[in-house]
């Protein structure tokens, strides 16, 4: 009698095991690479929003694999000019996104008004084991203004940056200012370029080319001037509402139509017809089969 030959099976099994092991090794290598954790990095930034209430933002992150991940729950102390108790602006703890914000407290108003340049120091709390974390930023106090000019029917948006020098505000040339219109998710540049450089008078100018842009129900749009992450001035913002947009009136019958995106009460008739025909056809047959089972059951007694 011929003996069964299992060599093919064994080869097949060993190939399967080899491929599985290879795959597992690849996965482990990839995960090991991803799990390499670097020390935490602390950073501090200065912001002057359109409300003109300045604040400081500290962020903590670490490099995991090839990407940065936020580090939450780090307690950071923020100082103004000197790292001493009398210069402590406040203490913050970073959140889920690794970011914490701190407004300049009213008690520092005199210090804030007395000078045009400040050094902000962020230091990790040594009590929580973050004493080695340190970062600082030196900023010059500046103000950003957005304005509009209309001449011969041409609409122009201007952004002016001025820095504090003594008791006066002096224009700052050669700074890239972003001039844009505020939209839902991000801002849209008013012209063709992303940023516009300020001239010797501190003025950056862009022609407004978004004439048909939808605004609110009255046609109002918000113009925004921004200086982003500047080494000397930090992050500055200014806003101005103008009536340059197209008044937006939502279509009154948008959800009243029978469409694929309407509510369930406005389903297209053709879809309802197909769906009901199929469902009634199939379930009608299922009930017919159930009825046949009842007939079979009755036959026992008859």
């Amino acid at each position: 009698m011929k003996q069964p030959n299992h060599s093919g099976t064994c080869k097949c099994l060993s190939s399967f095991v080899a491929v599985s092991l290879l795959c597992a090794l690849f996965s482990l290598a990839a995960r090991a690479q991803d799990s390499t954790k670097a020390p935490t990095v602390l950073a501090i930034n200065y912001f002057l929003p359109a409300t003109h209430v300045p604040y400081l933002e500290v962020s903590t992150k670490t490099k995991v694999g090839r990407k940065f991940e936020p580090v939450k729950g780090v307690r950071v102390m923020v100082y103004c000019n000197e790292q001493s108790a009398s210069h402590l602006l406040g203490t913050v703890t970073t959140g889920e996104t690794g970011i914490a914000r701190l407004g300049i407290p009213p008690s520092f108003r005199d210090t804030w008004d007395s000078s045009g340049q400040f050094k902000f120091i962020a230091a990790g709390d040594s009590a929580t084991g973050n004493g080695d974390l340190n970062s600082d930023i030196t900023i010059k106090k500046a103000i950003l203004v957005v304005d509009t000019v209309t001449q011969d029917g041409v609409r122009t948006v201007t952004g002016t940056l001025k820095e504090r020098e003594g008791d006066t505000w002096k224009p700052v040339p050669n700074i890239d200012i972003r001039l844009s219109v505020k939209r839902m998710d991000a801002n849209l540049s008013v012209g063709d370029k992303d940023t516009y450089t300020s001239d010797s008078t501190g003025l950056s100018t862009a022609q407004f080319k978004r004439d048909s842009i939808p605004g609110d129900s009255r046609g109002n749009i918000i113009l925004v001037a921004e200086v982003d992450d500047n080494d000397t001035y930090g992050n500055l913002f200014a806003e101005k509402t103008v009536n340059w947009g197209r008044a937006f009136t939502p279509p009154s019958n948008f959800f009243a139509q029978r469409t694929l995106w309407s509510t369930r009460f406005k389903t297209p008739i053709w879809l309802l017809a197909i769906a009901y025909t199929v469902v009634i056809g199939v379930w009608g047959t299922i009930f017919y089969i159930l009825f046949q089972l009842v007939r079979i059951k009755r036959m026992r007694t008859s």
Binding site: T285, Y288, I289, Q292, L293, I296, K297, M299, R300
Partner: peptide, 23 residues
């Protein structure tokens, strides 16, 4: 317990299976 296997029962069962298989 109601299944006896009479020709009538067989016929209905067979037809029901065919309908189900088609559907």
């Amino acid at each position: 317990g109601y299944w006896i296997g009479t020709p009538q029962q067989e016929k209905i069962r067979d037809r029901s299976i065919t309908i189900l298989c088609i559907l």
